[in-house]
Nucleic acid binder design. Structure first.
Ligand SMILES: [Zn+2]
Ligand SMILES: [Zn+2]
Ligand SMILES: [Zn+2]
Ligand SMILES: [Zn+2]
Lengths: 135, 135
DNA sequence: ATATTAATGTTATATTATTACACAATGTTA
DNA sequence: TAACATTGTGTAATAATATAACATTAATAT
C-alpha cells in the first residue's frame, strides 16, 4: 500500500455514519444522522460528532459550513481534503462538489498582499441550479 | 444620493451592534455581542440576530461561516457583499478580508461544468499569519 | 388617512456542538 | 508478553448558536 494514499480503516461508528452520508443525495445534518443511526446503537450526539470529525479529518466527508451539513467526498476520496469547493443552489439546496483543476490551481497558488501562504481553503458558490433556473 | 450606492440609515439597534463590531479587532460572536450591548437595552438573542441579518444583507458586515462570527466590512463598504474572501489564521484566529481584484474577477467569472452561474460566493483561506509563522 | 412594510420587545424553544469522566480497544515498544 | 501510549467508545450533562410565534410600534408609500 502506497504511503501517498493511506487507507484509513474506519471503525464501526465511523463506517455506519460514512455509509449513511455516502448514500444520501443531499448533505446531512448531525442530528438527522443521529436520528437515522439510533437503530444501530449510536445514541448520543457526541458519538456522531466524533465520527464526523474523524471523517472530515481524513477527507472522506466535507462540512458545508454555510449549512452545518456534511457530504461525502466524490473527488476520488479527495487528495484535496484541504482544498474544497462547492456549488449550492439556494432554491433546492442541492450541493455539488466542484472538481476543477484550474480553480484548485488558482486558489492553491493564491497569495494575498501580506504574503501569507495558505494551507487550506473552502469555497462555497451560491446560485440557482440548472433545474431551478427558469428558462 | 446615487441609486448605485444607497445609504442605509441604520436603526438604533443596528447602529449599536454595527459600531461594536466595527470597533472590534476580531470577529465577534452573536452571544458575545449580546453580552456587550445589554447595558444599552438590547436584551434578547433575537434582537441581535435580527440586526446581524440586516447588516449582513446590506453588506456592512460579513459572517465568517467557519467561525460563526461577524466582522465589519472594510472594503469601502463592500460593493461586493456577495463576493467575499477571508484569510484566517488557525493559530491566533486573526481574520482579514481579502481585497483582490484578480481573485474576485476570477471567481465571479468562474463557471462549473454544469454551466451554473453563481450570484454569490464565500471563500475562506486558512493558514498561519505572518506573526504566527515561525521564521 | 390608510395601507403596507420594516423593526422592535418578549418569551419560549429548537438546533448545533462540547465538556467531563469512566472505560475498552488498538497499536507500539521494551 | 508486559507496559505504555493512543485512539475510540458510552453516557450524562451542559454550552453555544439560532429560530418560531406573537403582540406592538415606527417608518414609508399611496
Ligand atoms: Zn472532496
Ligand atoms: Zn436547485
Ligand atoms: Zn466586505
Ligand atoms: Zn496568527
Amino acid at each position: 500500500m502506497s504511503k501517498m494514499h493511506k487507507e484509513h480503516t474506519l471503525t464501526k461508528n465511523q463506517q455506519i455514519i460514512f455509509d449513511l452520508i455516502d448514500k444520501s443525495p443531499e448533505p446531512m445534518k448531525a442530528y438527522s444522522i443521529l436520528f437515522s443511526v439510533q437503530k444501530k446503537g449510536i445514541n448520543a450526539p457526541l458519538q456522531v460528532y466524533r465520527a464526523l470529525d474523524k471523517l472530515v479529518e481524513i477527507g472522506k466527508i466535507h462540512k458545508i459550513e454555510s449549512r452545518n451539513a456534511f457530504i461525502a467526498c466524490h473527488n476520488s476520496s479527495c487528495q484535496v481534503a484541504k482544498a474544497t469547493a462547492f456549488s449550492i443552489c439556494e432554491i433546492c439546496e442541492k450541493v455539488t462538489e466542484i472538481s476543477s483543476t484550474g480553480l484548485s490551481k488558482y486558489l492553491t497558488n493564491f497569495k494575498d498582499k501580506d504574503g501569507m501562504k495558505y494551507s487550506k481553503y473552502n469555497l462555497e458558490f451560491f446560485g440557482s441550479c440548472k433545474k431551478c433556473t427558469p428558462k
